[in-house]
Each structure stands twice: as structure tokens, then as C-alpha cells.
Amino acid sequence: MKAVVLVFPGINRERDMARTLELVAGAKPAMVWHAERELPAGTDLVVLPGGFSYGDYLRCGAIAARAPIMEAVRRHAECGRLVLGVCNGFQILCEAGLLPGVLMRNAMLKFICRDVYLRVERSDTPFTRGYNAGQVIRVPVAHGEGNYIADGATIARLEGEGRVLFRYASPDGMIDPNWNHNGAINAIAGILNARGNVLGMMPHPENHVEAAMGSTDGRGLFAGLVDHLERAA
């Protein structure tokens, strides 16, 4: 798997992401600076990591979405190749129009860092083939603006097309407002684009890939991507 991690000024989970990709895929990803205009040839997966691009002083992700490298990311996505945006990366993808909707401030108006439970809704995507549909995984969140919202028609379309891949849930997989820490509509934690090759999600699977850190539940996402690309090759 030839992976690339984008580095925007103010991004701060790029090292976590790079380490996880290396750990699971066995190869160091290329770190690509936001001012570049091209992705390395043969890039399979582009990852937009978490952080506070440009300080998130404007709307989260709004400035990064207009960085020079994003044109190349758009072309990469248009070719059907894979893009993963985590946390700030998800916000950037929404601001860039590669995913629908927007991330608002958490319903409680506070930054929240804690382990949450996610129900994996489908296992037949490149991003979730490492899991079973209905499986509950535990991964951390760390964000102040993760409250996903879109207009009614968009939500209906996302749901109708099965593009919600992860939902906040109770440990036994029930959708319950008490377990939806940011108030996202339909407990949405991660969504796919229409073509199925761009995933944005708020939680941090890259922080739960080693038993030493308390859980390896995030590993399935990366292992699934490696598996998908190996089979495709």
C-alpha cells in the first residue's frame, strides 16, 4: 500500500497516523506538504490527519480545504482512488466538497477526549472490510467540533445509499443519545462519498492499534485497507 499523509500547518496527529500506517502496512507513508501540487506517483491512499489546520481560527478545515495540494487530492479521488480524513481531515474533506455536510460544535459546547463505541454499519467497503457489520469497536475521540449535520435530503440520501459507515453507540451496539457525545445527527461518526472511495470520520482509529494503548480496535480499518489494495493489485 502506497500511502501519503498530508501535512497542513497546524495539523498535529500526522505522526500518530504515519506510525500507525507503518505499523499496520509495513511501510512508512510519504509526508506531503500542503504547498505541493502533486501527489507522489502511484499513491493508493491519501490520508488527511487530525489537528488544527491553520489553528482552525476560521471554520474548521476551511483554509486547508483551499490549499494547493487539495486539487491533486480531488483528482486522486475522481480516479476512484482512496482518501481517508480523520477528525480535522474529515472537516477538511467536507469543506473541500469531497464529502457532504458539516461538523458543528459539539452539542455540549466543549472539547471532548474519551473512548467512544462505534457500530460498524457495513463491512463491504475498502475501509471496513476488516470488521463485521454490526461489530462494536472502541476508539478515542478528541474534538470540539464533531457534531455532524447536513440538510434533510442529504441525510436521507446518505442513509438510503448506506453511506454511514460508523455510528456512535453504546458498548452493546445500541444507538442511544447518552452515547452520542457530540450530538451528531443519526449518531453519525463517519461517512462515505457517493463513489465509496472517500471516508471521513471524527474518531481516531489510529490511536487504538496497539494493545499497550488499551485497545487494538482501530487496527481493522488500516488492515482492511491493506487487504483491499493487495487484492486489487
Binding site: N12, R13, R15, D16, R19, T20, K110, F111, I112, C113, R114, P140, A142, H204, E206, N207, E210, A212, M213
Partner: peptide
């Protein structure tokens, strides 16, 4: 208090807040 602090970034927090001492790999 500590849920408002990102205490897992870095991927090295072995013991999170709430114990006697934090442990960071």
C-alpha cells in the same frame, strides 16, 4: 476536567489521567 484535554494524542499515553501518575511511553 481531563476529558476536555486531549490526553491520547501522540499514541503513547499508557496510563491516562485518573491514576496515581500518568505513564507515557
Amino acid at each position: 476536567v481531563w476529558e476536555q484535554y486531549d490526553h491520547v494524542i501522540g499514541g503513547n499515553t499508557v496510563q491516562r489521567p485518573g491514576g496515581d501518575a500518568a505513564v507515557v511511553r
